[in-house]
Amino acid sequence: MWAKDLVKWLSTPIVTVGGASLSVASLLKGLVLVFCLHFVAKWLGQIVQRWLQSRVTVTDYAATLIARWVKVGIWALGLFLIADFLGIKFSSLAFFVGALGVGIGFGLQTIVNNFISGLILLMERTMKVGDVVSVAGEIGKVVHIGARATLIETPRGSVIAIPNSQFINSAVTNWTLSGKSMRVHVPITVGGDADLRLVEETLLQIARSHPQVLPEPEPQVWLTKIGDTIGLELLVWVSDPLDGAKQVQSDLYRSILSAFKERGIPIRG
Rank of each mutant, 00 (worst) to 15 (best):
P219W: 03
L6R: 15
T16M: 04
K225E: 02
V248N: 01
I66W: 06
L108M: 09
V15R: 12
I168W: 02
P241A: 03
V248D: 02
R208E: 08
Q109H: 12
F106T: 12
A25V: 03
E201I: 01
L252M: 01
V172T: 13
L151A: 09
I145P: 12
L196M: 14
G269H: 14
T229D: 05
K42R: 04
I152G: 00
N114I: 03
G146W: 11
F80Q: 14
L28T: 03
L235S: 06
V143H: 09
V238S: 00
G227I: 07
W222I: 01
E218G: 08
G130S: 06
T16S: 14
G140M: 00
L28R: 11
G30V: 06
E138P: 00
W51T: 03
A25S: 11
P266G: 05
W75E: 02
V199E: 07
T189A: 02
L33T: 02
S250D: 06
D195W: 04
D84R: 14
L52Q: 11
K128T: 08
V112C: 02
A147E: 02
Q109I: 13
P163I: 01
T64I: 00
V15Q: 14
K180L: 12
D243V: 10
V248T: 09
E233D: 11
E153H: 13
I88S: 11
R148K: 06
Q109M: 12
T110N: 13
I111V: 05
A67R: 04
V40F: 15
I162P: 05
F85T: 13
K29A: 08
W9I: 01
A149H: 03
P266C: 05
Q212E: 10
G192K: 03
V112N: 05
D251H: 07
Q247T: 14
V17A: 07
T229S: 02
A25L: 15
G78F: 03
D84H: 04
L203V: 08
L27S: 05
V248W: 03
R55M: 09
I226R: 00
W75I: 05
R156T: 10
F90W: 10
D243W: 01
R125T: 15
A62F: 10
V70F: 10
V190I: 09
I82Q: 05
S92Q: 13
G78W: 04
K8W: 12
L196R: 09
F260P: 00
F39N: 06
L10S: 04
T16A: 10
F80S: 10
V32L: 15
A63V: 15
G103E: 13
L108W: 03
G98F: 13
L27E: 00
V40W: 15
G227L: 05
A245L: 01
G137Y: 08
V72T: 11
D84Y: 10
L242I: 00
V129Q: 11
S21A: 14
L252Y: 08
S258F: 07
A147C: 01
V186C: 04
W175L: 12
A259G: 02
Q220M: 07
S21D: 15
P241R: 03
L65R: 14
I14Q: 10
